[in-house]
């Protein structure tokens, strides 16, 4: 699903002394069918921007086009309803939005709300729960009686149950332990790979995830997009990123330090353990200057 922002501005607390433009006259096009990451320090406007992508926020000024839907400040709420059917959103700490008696009912809620019969909705819910690794023994339990990691999976199953075309993930792994983070990212990536015509937009502070999974990385600062490119292009700009409070993946930090210390050229855009090892091995095997 393609996204196109046209002079998009969003102002919090308009007409008060606290008025802030969280997004400021932004022009942006994000192509569909790609895995896009948005990075930027806290307060740079990432969450405000992505909440426009499923109509949770309407522009104060300018417009945003998501697939075939255009949203402006005066767009009727009713028109945003079908948009939310197609654009799924996983917030930070999505488990805070669970509220049903049982895990199954929580996940079936979305599809039922969009017109599925109870049987259909539960069938979909069961599939989605299985996909996120929730055992059927847990289906009748309260979502509040399982571990934090499981709660988050349930919440995510609820979003996937609507079979969205575009999945927006706003810091989805915050607070999870390393194993939980790894499993969660793999889940999203598999979801994206296994289906046709799907897009993911991931907001993250984990530069490793942005580097490893994205086709394109978008850099935000002060309510605007200040750079974009492939992970390789973006994470070659360590100094620029540090200036706006960001870092490069640890693998890149290591390879750049090695390059500086040894005064020899090496491939510094490696984002996995294997690629980093390979770059170091070829550095070691290459003879130094005579």
């Amino acid at each position: 699903m393609q996204i196109k922002a046209n002079h998009l501005t969003y102002t919090y607390m308009k007409n008060t002394p606290f008025e802030t433009n969280a997004i400021d006259k932004l022009d942006l096009m994000i192509p569909g069918e790609q895995f896009t990451s948005i990075i930027g320090h806290t307060g740079s406007g990432k969450s405000t921007l992505v909440q426009h992508f499923n109509g949770l926020l309407k522009p104060t000024d300018g417009s945003i086009k998501i697939g075939e839907w255009t949203v402006k400040s005066d767009t009727k709420q009713k028109l945003l309803y079908p948009l939310r059917r197609h654009v799924g959103m996983v917030f930070q700490f999505p488990e805070h939005q669970l509220f049903h008696e049982t895990i199954l009912a929580d996940v079936a809620y979305g599809p039922m709300n969009f017109g599925f019969s109870k049987e259909e909705a539960e069938k979909v819910a069961k599939e989605c729960l299985a996909n996120v690794g929730i055992d059927d023994q847990l289906f009748d339990r309260s979502p509040f009686d399982v571990s934090g990691g499981q709660m988050r999976r349930v919440a995510i199953a609820g979003v996937l149950a609507l079979d969205p075309e575009l999945l927006i993930l706003d810091e989805p792994t915050a607070g999870l332990d390393p194993e939980g983070q790894e499993m969660m990212m793999k889940l999203f990536h598999d979801w994206y790979e296994e289906r046709e015509e799907r897009s993911i937009i991931l907001v993250t502070h984990q530069m490793e995830d942005a580097a490893r999974y994205s086709d394109e990385v978008i850099v935000m600062d002060g309510g605007n997009v200040i750079d974009r490119g492939t992970p390789r292009q973006i994470f070659a700009k360590k100094a620029e990123l540090e200036k706006i409070g960001l870092t490069v993946p640890e693998s890149v930090q290591l390879l750049e330090a090695l390059q500086a210390h040894s005064e020899s050229e090496l491939n510094t855009s490696a984002f996995t353990l294997e690629d980093t090892v390979e770059s170091i091995l070829s550095f070691l095997h290459k003879k130094g200057r005579d």
Partner: peptide, 16 residues
């Protein structure tokens, strides 16, 4: 640490 690994690797690099 990064420093330890970088220093160790540079020691292993053949000079000529």
């Amino acid at each position: 640490s990064h420093e330890e690994l970088v220093t160790s690797l540079c020691k292993l690099k053949p000079i000529t």
